[in-house]
Design a protein around this nucleic acid. Sequence first.
DNA 1: TAAAAAAAATACTAAGTAGTATGTTTTTGA
DNA 2: TCAAAAACATACTACTTAGTATTTTTTTTA
Lengths: 200, 200
Amino acid sequence: MEQKQKSELTKQIILDESFKLFYENGFKTTSIDKIMKATNLTKGAFYYHYKSKKELGLDVIGSKIQKRVYDGMITPLYQDGNALEILEITFSGRLKSFSLFDKQHGCPMNNFINEIADEEEAYQMALKRIIEEWKAALTHIIERGKKEKVINTLYSTDAISIYLISAFEGIRGIRKLYNDDDILDDYILGLNSYLKQLKA
Amino acid sequence: MEQKQKSELTKQIILDESFKLFYENGFKTTSIDKIMKATNLTKGAFYYHYKSKKELGLDVIGSKIQKRVYDGMITPLYQDGNALEILEITFSGRLKSFSLFDKQHGCPMNNFINEIADEEEAYQMALKRIIEEWKAALTHIIERGKKEKVINTLYSTDAISIYLISAFEGIRGIRKLYNDDDILDDYILGLNSYLKQLKA
DNA sequence: TAAAAAAAATACTAAGTAGTATGTTTTTGA
DNA sequence: TCAAAAACATACTACTTAGTATTTTTTTTA
């Protein structure tokens, strides 16, 4: 029993350090050696827990990145309250909550999408799953907003969802190019007027 | 004279093949060896024309990628006509014009931004320059639209520009995860209603 | 046409890469 | 307490990488 826990712990440590290094330096340029150096463990330990780097990548996406998006962007959408207000708070609030590191390195999910999604179908599917859950949460709150006569039923729920997700992921990349938050302020302004226009 | 032309030609060949391979497989995983194999030239030729891979990367961004964005998204914005219509045609038309390859591999600029922009300031600046020119073109057409009472002056020009660019670059990444164009249709729907709402 | 310069080819280095083979230590369960 | 299994360490392989040093070919120019 205790061994199983300790084993799970080391796997978690590998996972944590992997996420950090992938986030900071990208997936491809982060080697197993670098990861294991960061964990103070060795290659033997790694290949005991994972059969390949690809499997690690999929685990990082399916656990660390998924959780991050869930906590920041999905779970908040299931709370009660005015649908449009929740959308505004979730999208602009999340952006404002980012650390400098997070702003400089963009969205880990988006980084993965643009770095490796087109090279392996497995990565593509793992990332798609997160987007689909995000979309489902948006569908839920937008439909609720429509029912509660807060959001204009004229607009397609899918269209709103995709446009919101796209703009959010897009700005996370663009921000990398700048050294201040002016660009984020412009995005938030754009987001706010977009949301206002959805009003019923 | 003839030699200079031939020399420029080889450099152009290297540039063309580099762009193709970077676009298809990413910057980091595309080695000089692979590029030079594609050109049927050798490493000696490469290091005669470029002093490093970084210099090549900057050249690809500053020439190939810049030209692509110019031709597809910037130049069209300087034509005459209804500002909102031009925006709609440019953004949705460009998406519709993409080949399957382009859809599967996303936006070359966005790929660069998310893969390497945070690792080297030189890349960051080269990419930023393109975004700034794009933003300038959008500013131009939006301001014109406002003057001609086509676009509501209530909305911040910068906010509209950034929101448009973000959503466009965002969807280019998201599309990688899917195997059909439904997601693009949703984006176009979202874009169209967004633009309509900007009407004066 | 011959020396000089430019363009490209060949052969290399040193470091990094994913993954494997085989060892050693630690823990478990009978 | 002792064999077996689990967890990790060490040492390696075969390959790829960016970049360099040197040589050969091609072109220019005087």
